[in-house]
Simulated scan of single mutants.
Amino acid sequence: MPVVPAKNVAEMWVTPSAVLAEDAHLWREGQRQRELEERRARLQEKAAQKRAGIDRKNAVSRRAALERAATAQADARRANLGPAGAR
């Protein structure tokens, strides 16, 4: 069996159909990557909006809890110290 010498990649001749197939593959891969990035961006935006909604609800809940706690503390002071405790 004869030994075939290794050729430099730059010297190798490639058929036009192989070039077209590679170009088509690269285009499809680029398209797939763009679609994936767009989908990822949409999902991140949706998650950020959901997080913002949760944060808004938490802020309202926290504010209401602080108001209830302040009222309870003031009531406890009035009960323990009489009228002088409600400053």
Rank of each mutant, 00 (worst) to 15 (best):
L66V: 01
E37Q: 05
N8Y: 02
A59F: 06
R87M: 06
R87G: 10
V60C: 12
K50V: 08
E29S: 14
P2M: 10
G85C: 04
I54L: 05
D23M: 08
E45Q: 15
D23E: 11
D55C: 03
Q31T: 15
A21N: 08
Q73R: 10
Q73C: 06
V19W: 01
G53R: 03
H25P: 01
A79K: 13
R56F: 02
R62S: 12
A86Q: 05
R77H: 07
E11S: 06
L81T: 13
R42P: 03
A79R: 13
A48Q: 08
T71G: 13
A21I: 00
R62D: 11
Q44T: 15
S61R: 14
M12I: 07
A69M: 04
L81G: 06
D23H: 05
R63D: 12
A24N: 10
P5Q: 04
L36N: 11
T71S: 04
L20Q: 04
A84V: 12
V14A: 08
G30V: 04
A52Y: 00
G85D: 00
R51H: 12
V4K: 03
G53C: 04
K57D: 15
L36W: 11
R42A: 03
L20D: 02
N8R: 00
H25L: 06
V9D: 04
A86C: 02
P2S: 13
R87E: 09
R62F: 08
Q44A: 15
G85R: 05
A74S: 14
